[in-house]
Amino acid sequence: MYLGIDIGSSSSKAVILNEDNEIVGISVKNLGTGTKAYKEVITDVMQQANIEDKDIKYTVVTGYGRITFEDADKQITEITCHATGVGYYLDDVRTIVDIGGQDSKVIKLNEKGQVENFVMNEKCAAGTGRFLEVMARVLGCGLDELSNLATKATKQVAISSVCTVFAESEVISRLSAGESIENVARGSHIAIAKRIMGMCNRVGYTPKVVMTGGVALNADMVQVLSTELGCEIEVLPNCQAIGALGAAILARRTYNKLEA
C-alpha cells in the first residue's frame, strides 16, 4: 500500500493506493498546515483501507506542510503531484488550473503528461482561495454558498482591485451602495478568473484544461473561468485530493522504481 498526503494551507488530504493502483482510501478535511488535520486524514484513509502503519511501503508528502512533516519517505512539490494525479484520470490534459488556499498555479503539460512549465501566483493572496474566503466573510455567507448565490446574479459587477485587502473594502462599499450580494458574489468570481486568465496566458495554455483544488467545487467559478478562457474546463472526481493522489502514485512508482 502507498500513502500520499497533501497538507495545504487550508485543507489536508490523504490517499492510499493498493498494489493494483486502485484508490482504497481517500479523505479530505478543511483544515490545513499548523493544525492536526493531517493526522485525522491519515487515520481516516488507514481505516478505509483497513490497514495498519506497517502495511504502508512508501509515503510521499506534498503541499505547504510538506517541509515540516517528518514521517514521509519523500517530499515532492504540488506541481509534480498535481500533474501526476491528473494523469490518473485523463491522459490528454495539457493545462491544469489549481486554485488552492494560498497558492494558485497553472501548469502546462507536454503530451507525455509531464510538467513543461508552470506559473504560480505572486506573493499576495489575489487569485487564490483566500480571496474567496474573504469575500464569503464580507458577504456573510459560507464558502460553499458563493456558487449558488453567484448563479443568481443579474448583472456583472467589476471588482477592480487585485489586492485582497483593497477588494474587501471595495466590496463593502459596493454593498453599502445597494449592490446585491448575488451580483457581488459573481463579481468576485470574475475577479479571480481574470487573475487566473493572466497566469494562463503567461504559461501559454492549450486545451484540454482541467481544474483541481477546493475552488473547483464552486460550479459558478468554473463556469466563469471557462467563459473567460473561451474553452471548456473539466473538473475531475476528487478534485480536492488530486495532489494527494499524485503523491500516492509517485510513492508507488518510487518504491517500485517504475517509470512515469
Binding site: I76, T77, M120, E122, K123
Partner: peptide, 30 residues
C-alpha cells in the same frame, strides 16, 4: 520565477521560494 525584493525583507516568503525551487529541481531531475 519567485517574488522577492533586494532589500525590503517584507516582500519574500521562504516557503513560497522553497516550493518554486523544489519544482525547478523536479523539472531539472526529469
Amino acid at each position: 520565477v519567485f517574488d522577492g525584493d533586494q532589500t525590503d525583507p517584507r516582500s519574500f516568503s521562504a516557503a513560497q521560494y522553497e516550493t518554486r525551487i523544489q519544482a525547478l529541481l523536479e523539472m531539472m531531475e526529469k
